[in-house]
Design a binder for these strands. Structure first.
Length: 889
RNA sequence: GGGCGUUUAGCUCAGCUGGGAGAGCGCUACCCUUACAAGGUAGAUGUCAGAGGUUCGAUCCCUCUAACGCCCACCA
């Protein structure tokens, strides 16, 4: 009657139907809402807000899955958990996208529309197309509380940004300055240092002559950018350079521009480098800017906002630098002032966003002074109040904060948080305000305007851990349980944004809370392809997580992510691996399919321990150990270890042995035994579900529906299994391991003899270990079920052995399979000899140690005993093989 | 130029504070066996990049070399 019920469940797991069933249930019935747990403690993870423009890619899938594994684990552990989702307005990316769209459809630029209309369109775009990720990420099963969802440009976020800005402004930490910044000529905006990527570019040194005034001398300068000479305001030499000492203080005539500029002395100039003469262009070079400041040089800006030469570029006005360069050189050549060109590759800054070559340019920008904040941030790490996992990443963190440059926070964009600084046209008053100002507080004039720039996106991101929890509005903070969830528990992110984001939060949040934003920072790997290359659009080597979920299921994808996430920096998410774990999910599915028909026989909970048989004790003990391992690993963010441990337990212990060992009982007649075994299987499966749930939530919740009792809630809010010392059965584990060893050995012989799977065989077991013989006798049914052994004869090792037989030896037992008819003795002997050789080698390794007095004297007792035991066991095996080989020969 | 990281089975990688060289996939042989062929059973595979050092003992610690990768940096 049992066998029919098997067909109630489909033979293969269908992830989709399960995913579609459980996610809406969890979400609609508010299982993601923070609830009081048995620990009375809270645990909070803030989701790094994905870009509003973004589509879910593998990087997100990794990030979100890991966060969810942690939050689900903590929920099961009895914490009041909050996983708080959000979305980022992504200033540049979004603006660029909308600009492109408008240009494509209407052939209009944002200037044609004007700021207000452009922003209206951007919001419209956001409502229609933005935030796809929020929908997509649900497919992953992430258990964030969507009621907490917040967008970086929501009114709540705006308030936080304005408040933060005004506080920093009033404290004098935000200042406006003419400073040399990285200018992106395509975006036509300043960008921060962190947004500049240095790429190798093939260029050249151009050697040019600058005539010295009132002299026949000409100074030879070397430059990679001759077209910037229009902005030169000095030529610098090293004060110690004897060649030029006498010229310091004189003037040169700048060719083409025919302008007189001084020859100055500055330590920065490297005597060895180039010609020893440096043309100084304070307006368009970071070093020259510093030199200019030291010598009070004039700053000449020779570029327009789009990177073309302005009126200082004379007849080349309107040309891009790269276009103007050869023309300038041509003219200098005509004047006899060009010496030579030497090919040279060098690093040139490029904008991370637009990929344009960055132009250093002097302009009026807003800066945040981070000198003190960075020290505070570093101290939290140094004092271990916030800890990096893996610890090594704190070096990267420190590298950035040790000598931080002040942060250029203004952007010449429209989409973003407009800088809350106002100017009065009448009295020139300038002030910051959290409100939309209408009149000047000083002169009451209404002739005022707001600074047109917006803030760097990372400014709002830097406040994210507190913005999301309602800061600075007290009512909102209360509603969002600020006090309970702040400081947040763990930040989960990739190492590529340690500078951009982690450092900024660590600097800004303490400024307003006097607290560190997180207890722990787990830095996970970056997804790479099979060949170890970072996945990127340009390589086209990305894997679409949605496609993976469609094909293999979210659980399989999550398990693949877990199995590759520990303290590593790369994660290879090859679809083949995901397929492998899909197969594992199917394996569990089928294990459940096997158990399912017997569930009605099962009681809940464990029977009295003294009633358990040895196999039951064994599996419970193994389960207990894997429980311990899972707890430790999850706590330390070693998802690779955790998933490996449960995989091995389920596959190699539970399915391969315990289920197999249970068949004869379940299909047998003894109702008491049957009920007990069903009970144990159910017990194990319930634990497996709970252990696995943080990694594979869908399939485990599905099983739970069958396993739970009527008064129990969903698995998502059950208890995570805990290690229990009383459930450790060392003897049973040892015995079972020996049984497994002997049965495997018998199967090995069967295959080597080509015995048909169904044919029964007779065997002899010889051992001097009475305990193990006794155990085997008790377990003869196992030999019959798992190795098709019909009769076993026992004996001591010294007993007479069958003459015509094939044998194997373990360290404790000799296994003989007597044969009728012809035996290929030669092959058997050679196999045994090989085995003997191998064992001898292993024995020697251990024995050599024991005969080395230095080892015996120095090694700790534990190690010594281990080696002794090992050697003794191997010796037994060698004797067995050796003695019996003699007989066969 | 500075810093960090990587180099372990054909592939992708794990090996924590030195003391048995491992996993998954792939591969080989045999099996549609009664939960599972997305499966079962049994198996093969490594000068742990190279050289030197410390140690009773090194994949693990130290030095050097090589290859690769990443980050930072103003070298005109």
């Amino acid at each position: 009657m049992e066998t029919q019920t098997v067909h109630e469940l489909p033979k293969n797991l269908d992830p989709k139907s399960i995913e579609e069933k459980w996610y809406p249930k969890w979400e609609n019935e508010k299982y993601f809402t923070p609830k009081e747990g048995k620990t009375g403690k809270s645990y909070c993870i803030i989701m790094p807000p994905p870009n509003v423009t973004g589509m879910l890619h593998t990087g997100h899938a990794l990030d979100l899955s890991i966060q969810d594994m942690i939050i689900r684990f903590k929920r099961l552990k009895g914490f009041k958990t909050l996983y708080l989702p959000g979305m980022d307005h992504a200033g540049i990316a979004t603006q660029a996208k909308v600009e492109e769209l408008i240009y494509k459809t209407e052939k209009k630029t944002k200037h044609d529309l004007g700021r207000e209309e452009f922003l209206r369109r951007t919001w419209k775009w956001k409502e229609e197309y933005g935030g796809v990720i929020a929908k997509q990420s649900r497919y992953l099963g992430i258990s964030c509380d969507w009621d907490y969802f917040i967008f970086t440009m929501d009114e709540e976020s705006n308030e936080a940004v304005r408040t933060a800005f005004c506080n920093l402004y009033n404290e004098g930490l935000i200042y406006q300055s003419d400073y040399i910044i990285n200018w992106d000529p395509i975006l036509q905006s300043a960008i921060s240092d962190a947004e500049v990527e240095h790429k190798e570019v093939k260029g050249a040194f151009y050697h040019i002559l600058y005539p010295v005034k009132d002299s026949n001398l000409k100074l030879e300068v070397a430059t990679t950018r001759p077209e910037t000479m229009f902005g030169d305001t000095a030529v610098a030499v090293n004060p110690k350079d004897k060649r030029f000492k006498h010229l310091i203080g004189k003037k040169v005539v700048l060719p083409l521009a025919n302008k007189e500029i001084p020859i100055i002395a500055d330590e920065h100039v490297d005597i060895e480098m180039g010609t020893g003469c440096l043309k100084v262009t304070p307006g368009h070079d970071f070093n020259d800017f510093e030199i200019g400041k030291r010598h009070n040089l004039e700053i000449v800006n020779i570029l327009n906002k789009d990177g073309t030469l302005n009126e200082h570029g004379l007849e080349w006005q309107g040309l891009k630098c790269t276009k103007a360069r050869p023309k300038v050189i041509e003219r200098l050549e005509q004047l006899g002032l060009f010496v030579k060109k030497i090919d040279h590759t060098h690093q040139v800054g490029h904008s991370q966003r637009s990929e344009a070559m960055v132009e250093p340019m002097v302009s009026k920008q807003w800066f945040l002074n981070v000198q003190e904040m960075s020290q505070v941030a570093m101290n939290y790490i140094k004092n271990d109040e916030t800890r990096f996992y893996p610890k090594g990443w704190e070096n990267t963190f420190f590298a950035w904060l040790r000598e931080p440059k002040n942060w250029c926070i203004s952007r010449q964009l429209w989409w973003g948080h407009q800088i809350p600084v106002f100017y009065c046209n009448k009295c020139n008053h300038r002030w910051a305000s959290q409100n939309k100002e209408k009149t000047c507080p000083k002169c009451k004039s209404d002739n005022i305007f707001q600074d047109p720039d917006v803030l760097d996106t990372w400014f709002s991101s830097g406040l994210w851990p507190i913005t999301t929890l309602g800061w600075p509005n007290l009512d909102r903070m209360k509603k969002r349980n600020f006090d309970e969830f702040f400081p947040t528990s763990t930040l989960v992110t990739g190492f590529d944004i340690i500078f951009f984001w982690v450092a900024r939060m660590m600097m800004m949040v303490p400024k307003f809370t006097n607290q560190h934003p997180f207890e722990k920072i787990y830095i996970h790997a970056i997804v790479t392809d099979k060949l170890g290359r970072k996945v990127s659009k340009s390589l086209g080597n990305g894997i679409d997580p949605i496609e993976m979920i469609d094909t293999y299921g979210a659980d399989a994808l999550r398990f693949a992510i877990a199995s590759g996430s520990g303290y590593n920096r790369n994660l290879n998410l090859d679809p083949e691996r995901i397929e492998g774990y899909r197969n594992f999910m199917n394996k569990i599915w089928n294990a459940f399919r096997f158990i399912h028909p017997f569930l009605h026989n099962a009681n809940s909970g464990l029977p009295a321990l003294n009633k358990l048989d040895s196999h039951e004790k064994w599996i419970i003990s193994e389960l207990n150990q894997v429980t311990q391992k899972m707890n430790e690993s999850m706590e330390e963010f070693r998802f690779d270890d955790a998933s490996g441990a449960i995989y091995q337990f389920v596959y190699d212990k539970f399915c391969s042995w315990f289920i197999e060992l249970s068949k004869s009982i379940l299909y047998g007649e003894d109702e008491t035994k049957k009920n007990q075994r069903a009970t144990i299987l159910k017990y194990c499966f319930r634990k497996i579900c709970a252990l696995l749930h943080p990694i594979t939530p869908f399939v485990t919740e599905e099983f739970w529906a069958y396993l739970k009792s009527d008064n129990e809630d969903l698995l998502i809010v059950q208890d995570y299994p805990e290690y229990d010392e009383s459930l450790l059965f060392v003897n049973e584990q040892e015995n079972m391991n020996k049984l497994i060893e002997v049965i495997t050995s018998i199967r090995n012989i069967r295959i080597s003899l080509n015995v048909k799977p169904k044919d029964m065989i007779k065997i002899n077991l010889f051992s001097d270990d009475d305990h193990i013989i006794h155990y085997f006798k008790e377990n003869e049914i196992c030999f019959a079920d798992l190795a098709k052994v019909e009769t076993i004869t026992y004996g001591k090792k010294a007993d007479k052995k069958p003459t015509k037989a094939i044998m194997n030896a373990t360290t404790h037992t000799e296994i003989f399979v007597p044969l009728e008819g012809v035996v290929d003795l030669a092959a058997h002997i050679s196999k045994l000899e090989k085995e003997l050789d191998k064992t001898k080698k292993e024995f020697d390794q251990n024995n050599n140690k024991l005969s080395n007095p230095n080892f015996v004297d120095h090694a700790p007792e534990e190690v010594l005993n281990k080696v002794k035991e090992k050697a003794a066991a191997l010796k037994e095996k060698i004797d067995s093989l050796f003695e019996n080989l003699k007989v066969f020969k």
